[in-house]
Design a protein around this nucleic acid. Structure first.
Lengths: 356, 356
DNA sequence: GGATTCTTGGTAAGCGCTTACCGCGCTGTA
DNA sequence: TACAGCGCGGTAAGCGCTTACCAAGAATCC
């Protein structure tokens, strides 16, 4: 037997570089090696510490995260649930989250649910299996009570396993980073009113998303406070996509040709609205019809005319969400992230300010 | 001792639901439970199988991925290295990768390196520690030989641990999903030539990125083949960002006011080019100056004028990359993903076709 | 009909790491 | 001088799972 000094049977001296091997190489116990390389409350003498570090470097030791996870029953990965990572809305949130994760030395596991609630639940279980330390939920939930309940149950299970959860935007899940969908929508609607628009159309996202509900509620609140009318025929639900926005606009103007402004519930759709209006319908923006978006994604400024929109601090929200789950502290003082109306060129005074 | 049937000492009957507990509940051995719940080559009798499944459901069992990873020494997570997940280029690649991952029941761990080679290396080690099954490298490398070598060494170590690696776009790393930067650039340049442009400017990304080199080389190749000239003063390097594109354009036209077309090395920069030209410099596009982009990100069609660009099949590339690392098979028949010139409204014939 | 192979269930040895606990040598105290 | 207290190193018992190997009964073959 070539190597009689190992504790159990001689490990194959070839193969992976384990803590065990580092310890042997350094001539210390595996406990000492662990304490040097992975920290902990205990101190290790200067000389041994040096030896261990040297051995680790010589051997090119890289710790085995799954083994650590098993032994400590905790990992350094956080899961992030988004609808679609290619959507700039989620891209911004993810970027913020990753920035935060880096600061807290966490790894981010992203799952794209494409808005499918079943998939969402499946991914929570998956992340639970991974023993993710925390879960960041960025996608809007649906308004189906049954689904919501099942999702909540899955989250409870996740928590029961010791995981933390944080939501970006309210969704009935605590804690969450407040994202003022309603307030932003009110701002947008109010701006349109201020400009003299009285007949507005709304190009909304999927009717079952709570984000859509909130934004729509904000618009309705502002509008009724101001004394305007918003019949259902002027609200059209569609996909949160460019082509959704375009098609919806075509439909909207076929039914309601006198609308003087359209409020799109996100910027991606607003791009479609702009195309439909200018290219398909031949309506000038903003002189004939004003358009306002939501989110202020990076390309909003590049649309023509540049898009007036409501800025949501998405990247900050993502970053703050990881603070929320990383902080040992309680989620205390949450200075709400402000929304802001970004006035650009796609809005202007209503041509005929006459109330209908 | 309350429960004499357990193999070792009685586990606390409270706490986590483990395979052990499922097995006890079902009245079978832990081996059988494992075989039922986690598959494997061995078959299990119908009755026991049913019992185990029932027990797992009753107890709400979720397997412990780190423990499995340790026992099997292999995980189901793949790492994805990008520069910036908020950049639509990487967003598209990531979306494709996630789609592929879902098909192969893999989880994707994304790391944003912000183009920092040191961070890139750090993340590879990290993913190595996680025992990721594979690594997808989407970001372009830098042309620094020292850094490249260190990165390669880290990748070799990753491979030595049994991980697979795939690159999106060539980078001196095998295997890779070919992305024809050079060919695409040639197409773009040739198109400009065809339209009569002889004095073109290039708004390039960071000079040290391989991608930038390849694209630039493609342009130069086409241009010299066609007999054109491209002095260095007409090539300006900048960030791969909107404001980079804008600033670069301003600089370019200050030095070379007679340029009739600008080729931006990605669409995000092209957006800045368009702004600089139309808003800052008052040059009409495409009647005075043509603009051509690269990548065909989703918003390219929404720029005004809509952007002529080179389409790179990014989402497919991401998806194919995971096939590459998931396939048991060798990376055989790689029908190269085609690039295509997407002619839209930002290009037109040169006003004065006179060669210089 | 006995030997041989399948099938199917169980046992137990790890996978690589953390950490409770032990023990030893030293210091400070009475 | 005896001893509690502390600092520091080692031992070994797990963490939850997979899987090589064993065993026993069923099926197959001369």
């Amino acid at each position: 037997m070539p190597n009689p000094r190992s504790t159990t049977r001689a490990k194959r001296s070839t193969g992976a570089v384990t803590l065990q091997r580092v310890a042997e190489h350094a001539g210390v116990s595996i406990a000492t090696a662990s304490r040097v390389l992975h920290g902990g409350p205990r101190t290790v003498g200067e000389e041994l510490r040096r030896k261990v570090e040297g051995a680790a470097r010589d051997l090119g030791y890289v710790s085995n995260a799954p083994a650590q996870a098993l032994a400590r029953s905790s990992t350094s990965v956080v899961g992030l649930l988004v609808h679609d990572i290619a959507d700039p809305y989620f891209g911004a949130i993810a970027a913020g989250a990753m920035r935060g994760a880096k600061r807290h030395r966490l790894m981010v596991m992203i799952a794209a649910t494409f808005g499918d609630p079943e998939l969402e639940i499946e991914y929570v279980r998956n992340l639970r299996a991974q023993r993710a330390r925390a879960l960041l939920i960025a996608g809007s939930g649906v308004v189906d009570p049954g689904l919501t309940e099942r999702f909540a149950a899955e989250l409870d299970a996740f928590r029961a396993d010791g995981g933390r959860v944080a939501c970006i935007g309210e969704r009935g899940i605590e804690p969450f980073v407040p994202l003022d969908h309603g307030g932003g929508a009110e701002r947008a609607a109010t701006e349109l009113w201020r400009l003299g628009h009285r007949r507005i159309g709304v190009v909304a996202g999927p009717a079952n998303l709570v984000t859509v509900h909130r934004r729509l509620a904000g618009i309705r609140a502002a509008w009724s406070r101001l004394g305007g009318e918003l019949p259902d025929t002027r609200v059209v639900f569609t996909d949160f996509t460019r082509s959704g926005g375009r098609d919806a606009t075509l439909g909207l103007f076929a039914a309601e040709p006198d609308v003087t402004a359209v409020l799109a519930l996100n910027d991606v759709m607003a791009a479609g609205v702009l195309t439909a209006l200018q290219d398909d319908l031949g309506r000038a923006v903003p002189s004939e019809v004003s358009v306002i978006g939501f989110d202020d994604v990076p390309f909003a400024v590049d649309l023509r005319p540049s898009l007036t929109t409501v800025r949501l601090p998405l990247e900050q929200a993502g970053e703050r969400a990881v603070q929320l789950i990383a902080a040992g502290a309680s989620p205390a003082r949450q200075a709400p992230l402000g929304v802001a109306l970004v006035a650009r060129d796609s809005t202007g005074p209503a041509g005929d300010a006459a109330p209908e």
